[in-house]
Design a protein around this nucleic acid. Structure first.
Lengths: 189, 189
DNA sequence: AATTTTTATGCAATTAGTTGCATATAGCTC
DNA sequence: GAGCTATATGCAACTAATTGCATAAAAATT
């Protein structure tokens, strides 16, 4: 079964460079993590499993004071796992978004609360879009001339940018339509 | 803590009508489930918990042959739980999408495999968009004249439609850019 | 000098989600 | 009449993800 995607995300991050769990966690915060979030606890646990399964090597780097660094690198087995996952895995993890569940409550709960949730979401999208744009301007102004191994990363970023844009426009349209909702019945009709 | 969203999704589905676990599972397949998937096993388990917590009532409807129906309905406590969840919960469950992790492998794995994954995804988006459009044409041709309690559902659908459209365009652009990738090095450079 | 942030690792407990299985009848199709 | 689909419920086992806690020192900030 090629299901546990966190391990694949970790292996992917190790393609470019050998990393410690700590460094991996940071990577997840700034790039891979835009599309696959994970906490450091999860990452450490997963690394242990990957090591046990021979997908990664560990090099222990003694340090004074701090815990020793454990620098992980891909093994051939790890690469193979990654490649075969790319080939077979299809399973689409269903979208889960609370906001839409909230929207199903329009008409039964004060609209105000729901518009508030949308406004919060809008702010979030704005923040993300700005972040993505910044990254784009810094590293991906000329997609066609990128080295091959950067093209996928760029495309992910592009997807992120467009998702945020679409979402932002939707937020405004949603807020518009919700101004036409007057009643807030609390009982079932 | 207002975290477990499946229970909120269930309570939301019960706003409109009283339902059995089975009927809920079906609802999840066709509307709420576009934005929050759940298996029948999950739903039955959750219903039990909600009942234990006094958020829903059960009415047992004896049947011959088949297991007795258990028809669930919201209690006042359930409504309150739902409303307070709408007010406080903010937590954005991070997007998790395998496809983007796959994209990070461009340059290290045969591009073919990745374009294939995108094509699969494209087909999926096409299928979903068609489905959403069908629902839109059937029930939501005139958003402004909808009864209030349908407006949120419509907005969810609208979000779905736009997400799929955006994703489809992106798929094509991605496939385009990936035609410019020639090399498939399997070793770290 | 004291506080906060960053580096660096990890365990334990809990909650959420998936997969496989089990039961049992009615009704429809081949 | 054999097999499939729909109705209707649920347990058990497992995998994945989250949350809270714990340690410990260097570096940066106030």
């Amino acid at each position: 079964m090629h299901t546990m995607s966190l391990s694949h995300a970790i292996l992917t991050a190790l393609l470019d460079e050998d990393l410690t769990g700590y460094a991996l966690a940071k990577q997840f915060d700034v790039s891979l993590g835009f599309f696959w979030q994970a906490s450091h606890q999860q990452i450490y646990r997963e690394l242990k499993g990957l090591h046990l399964a021979g997908r990664v090597n560990v090099e222990e780097v003694p340090q004074h004071g701090k815990p020793d660094k454990r620098v992980y690198s891909l093994t051939t087995l790890g690469r193979d796992m990654l490649e075969s996952w790319i080939v077979d895995s299809t399973r689409a993890r269903g979208a889960k978004d609370e906001l839409f569940i909230k929207l199903f409550n329009v008409g039964s709960v004060p609209v105000k609360q729901i518009t508030l949730a949308i406004e919060q979401r809008k702010a979030e999208h704005t923040r993300k879009l700005e972040l993505y744009r910044k990254i784009e301007m810094r590293n991906y102004t000329s997609p066609l001339t990128l080295p091959d191994r950067k093209k996928g990363v760029y495309l992910s970023l592009l997807a992120g940018i467009r998702q945020e844009q679409t979402a932002l426009i939707w937020c405004d349209d949603a807020l518009d339509l919700l101004t036409t909702v007057r009643s807030n019945p609390k009982v079932k009709g």
